[in-house]
């Protein structure tokens, strides 16, 4: 499962279409959510995991899909680096994050490595992808990494924290989607590389 999660993160780094990247993140959240459901047991834990799955796998991608529809690009934004370079960077970042940090002994070692790899991969996506929507997806990939560790530690983390985090994430993604639309309105494109006016 962890390999699939990281693989889907790689996909966001590589694909050019925002809609396809959004779908990949939705699938990533779905895989993660199903894993959380199986670990949640019964009762309130199951309900919380279900709500989080719905929000991460459906609501957040829906917000971004709507924003993507409203901001049609005349042509795909050309990536500043080739797919091969992006793949190499993603591999390097993922490997360093997964291998350089010693085992903390808190959760399954693979989960610890996967969480760190996804966090760093998310940061790398934000740094290397130009379209605003792809940068938001980078943030969600990073947050999915944190959620992976949260569901992997014995007993999980308190439901109120999980729900609070997902609520904040919805707020931030909604605001970021609104920004994406305003940027598109102002520049005629969601290419954040065009936002380079503020320099000292």
């Amino acid at each position: 499962m962890i390999a699939a999660l990281v693989g889907l993160g790689f996909g966001v780094m590589l694909v050019r279409r925002r809609s396809l990247a959004t779908l990949l993140v939705s699938v990533q959240a779905l895989v993660l959510g199903v894993g959380a459901l199986t670990l949640a047991g019964e009762g309130s834990g199951l309900a919380v995991a279900g709500v989080i799955l719905l929000v991460r796998a459906l609501a957040l991608p829906a917000i971004l899909a709507i924003s993507t529809r409203r901001t049609r690009e005349p042509a795909l934004v050309a990536p500043p680096r080739s797919a091969l370079v992006r793949l190499l960077v993603a591999t390097f970042v993922g490997l360093v994050a997964a291998l350089a940090v010693p085992s903390l002994g808190l959760a399954d070692r693979a989960a610890e490595s996967g969480a760190l790899a996804l966090l760093c991969l998310g940061i790398a996506i934000v740094a290397m992808r130009r379209p605003a929507i792809l940068q938001v997806l980078g943030i969600i990939v990073a947050e999915n990494g944190v959620y992976l560790l949260a569901v992997s530690v014995p007993g999980g983390i308190p439901a109120v924290v999980e729900l609070g985090v997902v609520f904040d994430l919805v707020l931030v993604v909604t605001v970021a989607a609104a920004f994406s639309e305003k940027i598109h309105e102002a520049l005629g494109s969601g290419d954040t590389d065009l936002l380079r006016g503020l320099r000292d």
Binding site: I139, A176, F179, L195
Partner: peptide
């Protein structure tokens, strides 16, 4: 345009930072 640039940087960079803190 400049305000959108500032707001965008603020949202993206601080949210990523907070993801690190959350981990």
């Amino acid at each position: 345009r400049s305000a959108l640039e500032a707001g965008w940087k603020y949202v993206v960079l601080t949210t990523l930072g907070l993801a690190v803190a959350l981990l």
